[in-house]
Amino acid sequence: MELKFVGIGLAIGLASIAAGLGIGKIVTQAIESTGRNPEAHGKIFNMMILGAALTEALAIYALVLSFMMLK
């Protein structure tokens, strides 16, 4: 029974680490390119939101799974 909770914690924790690293990378690059080309701010921001959402989805899968395992 206790092992189940360790598994749930690991699932969401590992997914959060990966998604955090990914989103960090995306935002870093977006800020860098905005610094180089401030006029393209709007376009870069939209692309950043899209990329961040795709990456964040991976963490959300793990979250949904862990909620389902919690039952």
Binding site: A53, Y61, L63
Partner: peptide, 16 residues
């Protein structure tokens, strides 16, 4: 799967 889980997970997790 990705469309449905992304929206559901985000909103549901927010409520929790």
């Amino acid at each position: 799967i990705s469309f449905s889980f992304r929206l559901f997970g985000s909103v549901f997790a927010g409520e929790v």
